[in-house]
Computed example of a mutant assay.
Amino acid sequence: MPVSALSWSPCGRLLACGSSETPTFAVWDVSLGESTPLRRGMAGVQFMKWSPLGDYLLTAKVDASFHLWETMTWTSEPWASAGGALVGAAWSPDGRMIMGAFDQSSTLGTLHFAGKPPSLEVHLLPLGLSEIEAICGPGGSIERMAWDGTGERLAVSYTGGDAVYSGLIAIYDTRRTPIISASLLGFVRGPGAGAKPLAFAFHDKLRQGALLGVCWSTGFICVYPMLFRTGM
């Protein structure tokens, strides 16, 4: 099948593969070289994200629907979004929450698990980013997002709004207790005129803080260290 999405399990033994064309996705046991097809009607999968502890798998489709799978018996719960297709998602470090961005919204969504694995009881809460909403204006939306492995730094790019803020990446400080919240720290601008972020991701193993890598449209790849006071 033509593969459009891949995600390794945290243990490195299982590989989930999805396709934008075939109606199933498969989980490969790479040590045995064997695959198990799961659930028909899953055509259009555009990305997958395994939880940090391997208890859950998120699969997102181009039709604005997504599924949460518990990996003990491989049952799932379907979700649909009024904010468009899920274009980005990241798990919290403990695997108890997912943060997602939607292609027609300037507000993030957070899914909170109410029980322990393999429970699929989940509560959806919005995470408004007032600065992004003000910058984007009507018709603007979040384009990409990345959440670092400590759950303390969030990077967001966006479309629409004032040209002064075009092409920037907003950096937020995030707190997960008592409820998820985000506070703007500042913006990252790329090198060269008209630079726009094409892709970015956090290095998850930096002990002193977070390390953001960005690929810019001007041909530069830059890294931005963010040290936490607690680690200094």
Rank of each mutant, 00 (worst) to 15 (best):
G137Y: 03
A201T: 04
P178V: 05
M145K: 10
L185H: 00
D94W: 06
G83Q: 13
P23E: 14
A64F: 15
G115R: 11
M48N: 09
E77P: 05
G12T: 05
V223N: 00
T218P: 09
G139T: 00
Y158F: 15
V30Y: 10
A170Q: 00
G12L: 00
S106W: 05
D148I: 12
E21I: 11
G151V: 06
I98W: 06
W79F: 14
G41C: 08
L111N: 03
M232H: 06
D103H: 15
V87H: 00
G84T: 08
M1H: 12
G12N: 05
I169S: 12
G88E: 08
G137V: 11
E70K: 00
S105T: 04
D173H: 15
P37G: 02
A199Q: 10
P178E: 02
V62A: 13
C136H: 08
L15I: 08
W74T: 03
G88M: 10
I221D: 06
L124A: 05
G149N: 09
T174N: 00
R176L: 13
R207H: 12
A114N: 10
P117V: 01
G128A: 03
P117Y: 01
A101K: 06
A85K: 09
C17L: 13
H67T: 13
S65I: 08
S81E: 12
G194H: 12
L127Y: 01
R189D: 11
A146C: 06
G219H: 05
I180R: 09
A82Y: 02
L14Y: 14
M48A: 15
G128Q: 09
P93H: 12
Y158S: 06
D148N: 15
C17W: 01
M48S: 08
S166K: 15
V223I: 03
R96Y: 11
L108G: 13
A170N: 07
F113G: 01
R13V: 13
V27R: 02
V223T: 04
G186H: 09
S119Y: 08
L154N: 01
S119I: 02
E70H: 03
K196R: 04
I180Y: 11
S81V: 13
T59Y: 09
L125P: 00
A16S: 12
A146L: 11
T150Y: 01
L185N: 08
F202H: 10
Y56W: 14
G160R: 12
A114E: 04
A210Q: 09
P93A: 14
R153Y: 13
T159S: 14
S106M: 07
P117T: 04
A163H: 11
F113W: 12
M1R: 14
P191N: 05
A163F: 08
G100C: 09
E133R: 12
R40C: 08
S81G: 04
T73G: 03
A210R: 13
R176T: 13
S35V: 10
P191M: 03
